[in-house]
Design a binder for these strands. Structure first.
Length: 291
DNA sequence: CACTTGACCTGTCCGC
DNA sequence: TGCGGACAGGTCAAGT
């Protein structure tokens, strides 16, 4: 589910809701959703104050006063929804758009706060995870050791983007965009959207891309990610923000989930195909195959 | 090595 | 209506 924009929107929301709050309970019923909970929860989670909420790639990092951090990956269907203890719905109803009361059948972990609020980690498909890790060791987890640069960071330049792509000269461009070791945070939605914007066929090998193609793609990735953050992210099925609200980027999407509709640029029909093992949306006229 | 495929899970939708 | 199969926003491990 969530790609960079969705995780960023959750981060912004949690920053408003959780900073300064004290955690006083945790419940988890699916071991893989919080694999190391047993050892350190009592010493470093219960009683901790939330100090910071950060994002790196598609991962959230909640910094605690105990020197530990909660590191959270939502994978395909994860949600992090906060419900205030003062909710007029009785404390279990985050928002009309989430549909019903929490916890529900997808709730895997519940963090309780001293003020009565609760943070629900919901994950229908159980791919996501929460880990409690010493803050100093967070950068050393396997995922962070290998993950690529943040595409929205000012220090990430067109030159760096080109250099990183060129390490994978024979791979098709969509597979490279989805590879988190190359750049962080781009997933299936924004890969399709930015390739359409740059008029690049997703199966184009990297070494067939012209300089101008790569520069245009760089700009499109940033444009699409920034627009989505502004729109509150993309809700396909499961995604909601920290208050349980859906995002509206897909109303603006040009190709993602638009198969059968006219291309907004040339009016030819958008088609769905399969590239790098993933459902892929293209305009076959705007995005000509190069081989 | 570089690249592709299957596995991890549950739920939904589509065709027979 | 029931049932099987394909598919869904992400990453790993294992295979070629």
């Amino acid at each position: 589910m969530p790609e960079l924009p969705e995780v960023e929107v959750i981060k912004i929301g949690l920053n408003k809701l959780l900073i300064g709050q004290d955690i006083n309970s945790v419940k988890h019923d699916w071991v893989k959703s919080f694999p190391n909970a047993a050892q350190d929860v009592n010493n470093f989670l219960i009683g901790a104050t939330v100090k910071s909420i950060k994002r790196r790639a598609k991962v959230l990092i909640i910094g605690l006063s105990t020197g530990y951090s909660l590191v959270i990956h939502l994978k395909m269907t994860g949600q992090l929804v906060y419900v205030s203890g003062k909710s007029r719905f009785g404390g279990g109803h985050p928002s009309i758009s989430l549909g019903g009361q929490l916890p529900d059948s997808s709730t895997r972990v519940i963090f309780g706060f001293a003020g009565g609020g609760k943070l629900y980690f919901n994950d229908q498909r159980k791919f996501g995870w929460v880990r409690l890790i010493p803050t100093a060791e967070v950068p050393n987890i396997d995922f962070f050791k290998t993950v690529g640069p943040e595409p929205l960071a000012p220090s990430f330049t067109k030159r760096k983007f080109k250099e990183r792509l060129q390490k994978r000269p024979n791979s098709v461009i969509k597979a490279v965009l989805l590879d988190q070791k190359v750049i962080a945070g781009v997933g299936n939605i924004y890969a399709d959207e930015s390739l359409w914007g740059a008029k690049i066929h997703p199966e184009t090998p990297v070494n067939k891309l012209k300089n101008g193609d790569i520069e245009k793609l760089f700009d499109e990735i940033r444009t699409v990610l920034n627009l989505s953050i502004k729109k509150g992210g993309s809700t396909d099925k499961n995604y909601v923000d920290a208050e349980g609200k859906k995002g509206s980027y897909l109303e603006f999407a040009r190709v993602f989930r638009r198969e059968g509709s006219p291309c907004p640029r040339c009016s030819n029909e958008i088609i769905k195909t399969r590239v790098a093992g993933r459902g892929t949306h293209i305009c076959p006229y705007c995005q000509q195959r190069v081989s």
